[in-house]
């Protein structure tokens, strides 16, 4: 999966003088307030952070409230979906007109009928709604399936993704991964150059996905930690 990035940032956090006694707590609180929101400065949604305070010396701002700026070095994990990136998400609702998925457990994605390629046919099987591939009956998407799709647009305010299942390398992750070799093999026979490129691309996606998963676990850990801190604060 693409769209996740780890970056080192130099930050200055301005702290209210009333928090002078508990600076590290105030810093964490300030950073926690940035979580799960889109920020222009980070060019993404902050998912996790790891902070090192650089020095004990802070710069005091002149003014009625003498805020003081603490310099930090932070490792940030951000989510920055851009058009044509490949993302993965779990399908939570499915209907003839649209498919809804959740990415990384917090961001919602919709794929509308026009963006689902014709290969997929909408069916109701035993009372369950599914999209089945016309070519491969085993390639199915239903509620609970993890799908790989490309980003069409991203609403930064609500963190809502508009996605598409038009390209061939999108669909159910389970099926794509299983049939990856077969698929690239068959592809390489017909279109040698593009095929090999495609498989390399796929492998890369795969790697990114694994990375994404470990990172995600980290994120989870961090968030919990910060929440605990927060509840401890108050």
């Amino acid at each position: 999966m693409e769209g996740l990035k780890k970056s080192d940032a130099n930050l200055v956090v301005y702290i209210h003088p009333s928090k002078a006694k508990k600076v590290s707590e105030a810093i964490l609180r300030e950073l926690s307030s940035l979580l799960f929101k889109f920020h222009e400065t980070f060019d993404g949604v902050l998912l996790a952070y790891d902070v090192k305070i650089l020095s004990q010396v802070a710069k005091i701002l002149p003014g009625i409230h003498p805020y003081f700026g603490v310099r930090l070095k932070a490792e940030l994990l951000t989510f920055y979906p851009k058009p044509n990136m490949l993302l993965e998400g779990t399908v939570v609702k499915l209907g003839q007109q649209s498919m809804h998925a959740i990415v990384l457990g917090f961001s919602s994605a919709i794929i509308i009928q026009e963006d689902i390629r014709d290969e997929f046919k909408y069916k109701v099987k035993h009372g369950k709604e599914v999209f089945v591939s016309r070519g491969n009956k085993r390639h199915q998407i239903e509620v609970g399936t993890i799908i790989r799709f490309i980003v069409k647009s991203f609403d930064e305010e609500v963190l809502h993704i508009c996605g598409s299942l038009v390209p061939d390398h999108t669909g159910s992750v389970g099926w794509l991964d299983k049939n990856l070799e077969e698929w690239s093999h068959a592809d390489s026979l017909t279109k040698k150059r593009t095929g090999s490129e495609g498989s390399r691309e796929m492998l890369e996606h795969n790697k990114a996905m694994v990375d994404g998963e470990t990172l995600y676990l980290n994120t989870d850990h961090h968030i919990k930690k910060s929440k605990r801190r927060r509840s401890g604060d108050s």
């Binding site: 649209s98 809804h100 609500v158 809502h160 508009c162």
Partner: peptide
């Protein structure tokens, strides 16, 4: 419900 889920604008 559908409108809210269709795009961030309508949430």
């Amino acid at each position: 419900t559908s409108l809210a889920a269709s795009s961030g604008k309508y949430v």
